[in-house]
């Protein structure tokens, strides 16, 4: 199973501005200390081995969109702004695709704007012959209404009714297994404004959990045990780690998001193999996200007892194979 991150940012897409890029260049040149590179290979080597991740790369700024590969058809969680690049990739690979109609399965955590805003910029939706199935724990009315309203005047120039693909909305119930595109899929209701839903995907003995826009307060042991059960033994958990615990317990309480260390505690309890922090705070730059990753790993080292947890921070274009 391959997980491909097209968008990892929370709430609103962001982009590195000129000052941020200049700072990266300045730091890289400073670390180069005037050295001479004999060839392109040496440059690549210097970049990869001498520059930290926030200098040589970055986390990106597209909002939530995660592709899960391994079935015969396309499967994607959420349609944030990252969906635009996913659509571009398909257009590059297949052109208009009139001779190659495709089926797309979209699993919606919820329909807040940052999770649907990529759809008007998803070319396959405009091409007849394609099939788009949009699944969610919300009612089909709620799902469809959000998409239609987003793609109607005065919000967008191309009306929903002009889309060429065959689009349907499908309600999924929580705590029930579904078989979709060769995957076993289960939903869990999560604490978020208007509710959100987490997904557990299983195939060929591998499991990935997608749990974003969820506020896990860990105050009710029965509820926490249910989450633990949903995460249990997953190979990968993609988790809303938007805030620090102090933020989510004070000024951002009830904003519907979790913290980096709550994710560690839940994943350790559930004996998860790999915990991937996701839905990054838009105000955080690459250095801050990198620092949070180091701190989260340190926290895991302090509290883990007999279970080792791999920890990473999702970034746009990251690929994880499980």
């Amino acid at each position: 199973m391959r997980i491909r991150f097209w968008g990892t940012r929370g709430s609103i897409p962001v982009a590195a501005d000129g000052h941020m890029i200049r700072e990266k260049i300045r730091t890289a040149l400073s670390l180069a200390e005037g050295r001479h590179f004999e060839n392109e290979n040496q440059i690549e080597l210097f970049i990869d081995e001498s520059l930290r991740f926030p200098i040589r790369f970055g986390y990106g700024g597209d909002s939530s969109c995660v592709q899960i590969e391994g079935g015969g058809e396309y499967m994607v969680c959420d349609m944030g702004s990252g969906l635009r690049r996913f659509g571009q990739k398909i257009m590059t690979d297949y052109g208009c695709g009139l001779d190659h109609p495709k089926v797309y399965h979209f699993f919606m955590s919820h329909v807040h704007w940052d999770h649907i805003m990529g759809f008007p910029f998803f070319p396959p939706a405009y091409i007849s012959g394609n099939t788009i199935r949009i699944y969610g724990g919300h009612s089909t009315d709620v799902l469809e209404d959000a998409f239609r309203r987003q793609q109607s005047s005065p919000c967008f120039p191309v009306d929903w009714n002009q889309l060429g693909a065959d689009i349907s909305f499908i309600h999924l119930e929580v705590d029930r297994w579904y078989e979709i595109n060769g995957f076993c899929v289960k939903l869990m209701r999560q604490s978020h404004h208007g509710s959100s839903f987490g997904y557990r995907f299983e195939k060929d003995g591998k499991t990935v959990v997608y749990s974003t826009d969820a506020e896990y307060k860990l105050q009710n042991e029965e509820e926490t045990a249910a989450v633990e059960d949903f995460f249990r033994n997953a190979d990968l958990v993609i988790f809303d780690a938007m805030y620090s615990l102090a933020d989510m317990s004070t000024i951002r309480e009830d904003w519907g998001h979790s913290s980096n260390i709550v994710g560690v505690d839940l994943c350790l309890r559930a004996k998860v193999k790999h915990y991937c922090m996701f839905h990054h705070e838009p105000a955080y730059n690459d250095e801050t996200l990198y620092t949070i990753l180091q701190e989260t790993k340190r926290y895991e080292k302090i509290v883990h007892e007999n279970h080792y947890l791999k920890i990473s921070t999702a970034y746009d274009n990251l690929i994880i194979d499980i």
Binding site: A246, I261, E295, Y299, I302
Partner: peptide
């Protein structure tokens, strides 16, 4: 020391 570090990581040292 370990608990102090957890306070810093969680930003509880700020509140």
């Amino acid at each position: 020391p370990g608990i102090k570090e957890i306070f810093r990581i969680s930003r509880f040292d700020l509140v």
